[in-house]
Amino acid sequence: MTTVDVGRPARRRNPARRRNSVSGWSMRTIIAVVVAIFVLFFVIPIVWLLLATTKSAHALIVDNPFQPGSFGDLAANWDQLFGFQDGAVTSWVGNSALYALGALVITLVASIPAGYAMALTEFRFRRLLLVLTLIVMLIPNTALVLPIFLELNVVGLIGSPLSVILPMAFFPFGVYLTYIYFNTSVPRDLLAAARLDGCTEFQVFTRVALPLAAPIVALVAFFSFVQNWNNFFLPFVMLPSSEGYPIQVGLTSLLASTPAFNPSSAGAQSVQLPTLALATVISVLPVLIVFLFAQRFLVAGMTAGGTKE
């Protein structure tokens, strides 16, 4: 109590302090302006993109960029997009779903038990597998794409859906997240008790560990899905024909048919700018929806590796 009473008048009497708070005020204004500029930088492209899908090609260029268009134009853009090359966009989105979800299922089946075993059981090469996982997890996933292409070329898998699903299913980050989770959140005593009660090792995993792992399954699924859906380089290299494209690669076909960017493409199958904007929105829609609900996931996942300060 006394310290507070003494502290306050002293602070008020100190002229340096007052000057500080004046410069602190102007400092604050500058910082607020800078942050506002960054908010605009992050927001404007997204808002504009959403509005662009509701405009005609003419209105997009002539009207105020932030004036919304009409449902009629949105419908027209929709029709043009899904009419492109006899509904190619529909099959690209379907391909994306097949690849992303197929890889997701294999990722979960492979990485949850692996993370569990590495955290809570002992076996030879455990440490080797762990270090290998860490190192591969930290190299960018594009680094191995061409080597994997060269390898799959030898076994003749190029062009098949498996050539993207299997490499995407290899997700060391998911194994590491599972490892951390079981290492920190599931006590070994619990497993020992289950063994005493007569559970086999397999039952210990399915009846005790797995029911406790729901949060980590969701987290791994989130990261795996987002990464698979957005993957460009791998399918771009593995899938030579347009029927096999996921939507991310399909966007390049749409782009190549947009006269505004590629003047040589003007013709019956040409794509207008608002249609291309709509394609961009559709290509990210599933991830955008997942993102809206998953900010906490992202932080939890990316900081999971961090040992406490």
Binding site: P45, I46, N230, L251, V287, V290, F291
Partner: peptide, 9 residues
């Protein structure tokens, strides 16, 4: 939020 738009998008 822009993190949702990766790669080609």
């Amino acid at each position: 939020l822009p993190g949702a738009l990766a790669g080609a998008s």
